[in-house]
């Protein structure tokens, strides 16, 4: 055999498929033997390296993952924080969040209402005879003693007064009495609570309170008129439909709420009182809605006057 082995022959020997002649040449020829030796040594190293690599899998796997985990953890956290910041700085998101942050509820502005001074008063001594005619007592800011037709003897007399700041009708009479009463037997009238007349609570007249006249709560005259007899009724200008309350909607509750209001000279409802209640929050809803109503005030002698009105608010589910 002449010359050295070709690369293929050497490969064949390495593969284990060498012909006997080639094998013996490789053993004898230093150069070819060295080449085979070098290659098989390298392949042996490779084999051992792979073996090593596969056997030491656990610890290295953990180590290599730990490095990656640290980096990816940092990256995820950074991304999450950046995401929150970015989302928070987007205009639509800010717009959505802002109204919640600055939610101001403007209180319903209602015109300032002076206390109605046009009150009235009434009283009486539970007598079977109507109150007799007489002079009104003097006025004072606070009543201490209700007026009586027949003054009681007392060691420390207190001048009877009524509460009124309006000009009172003057009656020239020695006794106290109802200016609108009839002449006759002196009587405190059929009312009760002291005072004179058929009303209650220590005033004079048919009303209620310490004043005089048919109104309530002191003063002279009538607090609010009732429509009719020269007094026109108020006319609704602005109507606000009431909302249903959630409970009532759920309960399928319907009916009518009746409110009594006083429409003042400006056409604004005052002194609202629920006359017929429905409950389940509907009374409140009705009051709320009617408070927003506006009226053309009732007129008396061409002048706007407070007039009592009854409003029925109907709640009906469609």
């Amino acid at each position: 055999m002449s010359g050295h082995l070709s690369s293929d022959k050497i490969s064949a020997i390495l593969i284990g498929d060498g012909a006997p002649g080639e094998l013996s040449h490789a053993r004898e020829c230093a150069m070819c033997g060295a080449e085979v030796e070098t290659l098989s040594a390298a392949l042996g190293l490779f084999r051992e390296s792979v073996q090593e690599m596969s056997e030491r899998r656990a610890c290295v796997a953990v180590e290599s993952h730990r490095g990656a985990a640290w980096v990816s953890s940092l990256a995820i956290h950074a991304a999450a924080i950046a995401g929150i910041v970015v989302i928070g700085s987007i205009r639509p998101v800010m717009n959505m969040v802002q109204p919640v942050a600055t939610y101001l509820i403007a209180p319903p502005l209602r015109p300032y209402v002076e206390k109605l001074t046009k009150g009235g008063g009434g009283g009486g001594g539970r007598s079977s005879i109507d109150a007799s005619k007489g002079a009104l007592p003097k006025t004072s800011p606070r009543p201490f003693t209700p007026p009586r037709v027949d003054p009681v003897e007392s060691k420390l007399p207190m001048t009877p007064t009524i509460v009124a700041d309006a000009p009172l009708p003057k009656i020239d009479a020695a006794n106290f009495g109802d200016p609108l009463g009839r002449l006759g037997v002196p009587s405190n009238g059929s009312g009760w609570g002291g005072g004179i007349g058929i009303g209650i609570d220590g005033g004079v007249g048919v009303g209620k309170g310490p004043g005089a006249g048919p109104g309530t709560n002191g003063g002279f005259g009538d607090g609010a008129y009732r429509a009719g007899g020269g007094v026109s009724s108020p006319v609704v200008l602005l109507r606000v439909e009431p909302e249903y309350s959630e409970e009532a909607r759920r309960a399928k509750w319907q009916g009518v709420v009746e409110l009594q209001i006083v429409v003042d000279e400006r056409g604004v409802p005052q002194q609202m009182r629920v006359m017929r209640s429905l409950g389940l929050g509907l009374d409140e809803k009705a009051t709320e809605a009617v408070a927003k109503w506006r009226f053309k005030p009732g007129m008396k002698n061409g002048k706007p006057v407070p007039v009592i009105a009854v409003i029925q608010v109907t709640f009906r589910l469609l």
Binding site: F46, E48, S49, E52, M53, V60
Partner: peptide, 25 residues
């Protein structure tokens, strides 16, 4: 690759050479 070189008691030169061979393969 260095980690997978089986015998660590090799001389530095031999180690480098082994590493080179393994990488080449």
């Amino acid at each position: 690759v260095e980690d997978w070189i089986p015998d660590r008691r090799m001389s530095p030169e031999a180690l480098a050479s082994a590493k080179e061979q393994i990488e080449a393969i």
